[in-house]
Design a protein around this nucleic acid. Structure first.
Lengths: 226, 226
DNA sequence: CGGGGTTTTCGACTTATAATCGAAAACATG
DNA sequence: CATGTTTTCGATTATAAGTCGAAAACCCCG
């Protein structure tokens, strides 16, 4: 029994936009030596898989500030690794923008849109994790785990755009997150950029743990509060 | 490594409404002798957990017509069972209304709303599975796995009401499922009940595998098709 | 065979939420 | 202080869901 974590963050690109990256380390030994793998390892006898995933990230890639970590599924194909059968629990992890830890050698962030050759089934696990992230961005407050503690709406827009893979409308983003009570202004403003312009109000997420908004109010009972 | 499946179906109650039930068997041996447990068992060396769950259901409770089966998570607390640590993968299974198989002795359907004393952590797993079912009813076509092949809108309403735990509006149910392209009329009608009344048009789900409707179109890019 | 009772179906309206657009606000620079 | 830039927000439109009630289509009974 092992755990494998696809840890994502967004990192600045040259053109000012952000890129969705996943943390991978390059295998030195066979099988799949030279290919890139997800961090993880064997689950200890006195920990559950969630604790184990946290521990492995701290131990192996010095990653202690994972803002969110959740199971995405069990990968148990008998042939997923050569030799004896190893069952893996896959995780989705998120690190806020700008909170990247110093990485050990052989460990690097890679753009999810252009993965290097991946080891074993780690590419598939990464894809599943990215899909889960994209889905949850639209009906949960999971953005808190990708955004910095305080941020401008323009920054949040770039974070969402990077994770979703398409541009988002800033008016909608603001109004929807406000309506759901996920966002609130800090009261302070960020200094304007080099080109001037109105200074942006700093925002924060109201809660820093996963909250689900009713995906659909559909079929709602007559008397239930909205 | 074991699998445990919370298999649900809806069954008629005396008052004409439906009840959401889960399949449990009564343990004869310790630990937790006499308490009720989820069907499942140890994963074999040449099968993955999904195949294993299907096999166990077929072998142990003669359940071959599970219309839907999906992972809901890994349960790995070192103390979840006495003795050596056993990691379990939990599953949500669904059986259509009226498709109940003949059950082995010691195996019975129990109302989810009033579970008998459950073994180990099986009550918690059942709760998680029920929550997943309720969530997916509102943004997927998962109803196909609870409804018969053909059904009237009134029946579907009762199925949804049982699974969700609250009444649903038939007009909304119809219009929403139609709009999403999940439902279509068969062209035939069901005979009216003993009290007469307009005969109901028979309906069916258009697809019989899980389809997710965009939970939110939120943040949609300007040019993406709806 | 026509009226009253029953159930289903659907149109019409209201409300809630999201998408789009553009103008106003608030700053920097020359 | 005029001009350019970025942010913010109000106004409008579009889409989806919730609510209501009437019409449709059947039964039974007198």
């Amino acid at each position: 029994m092992e755990v494998l974590a696809a840890v994502f963050t967004t990192r600045p690109r040259a053109d000012g936009t952000l890129d969705l990256d996943v943390l991978l380390w390059q295998r030195a030994m066979d099988p799949d030596a030279g290919r890139w793998a997800l961090p993880g390892g064997v689950v200890g006898p006195d920990e559950d898989v969630d604790q184990s995933a946290r521990r492995q990230l701290a131990d192996k890639v010095d990653l202690t500030r994972v803002a969110h970590l959740e199971q995405i599924g069990v990968f148990s194909d008998p042939g997923r690794v050569p030799g004896a059968r190893v069952v893996a629990t896959g995780f989705l992890g998120l690190v806020p923008l700008g909170a990247e830890p110093s990485l050990p050698p052989d460990t690097r962030w890679h753009p999810v849109a252009a993965l290097p050759p991946t080891a074993l089934d780690h590419g598939g696990i990464t894809g599943r994790a990215a899909g889960r992230l994209r889905a949850k961005l639209s009906y949960t407050n999971i953005g808190f785990a990708l955004a910095p503690a305080e941020f401008t709406l323009a920054t949040l827009r770039r974070v969402y755009a990077a994770a979703l893979g398409h541009d988002v409308d800033p008016t909608n983003l603001h109004r929807i997150l406000l309506r759901r009570g996920m966002l609130e202004p800090t009261g302070t403003t960020a200094p304007p950029g080099p080109a001037g312009g109105r200074p942006a109000a700093l925002q924060r997420f109201t809660v820093s743990e996963l909250r689900v908004t009713d995906p659909f109010a559909a079929f709602r009972p007559p008397d239930r509060p909205a």
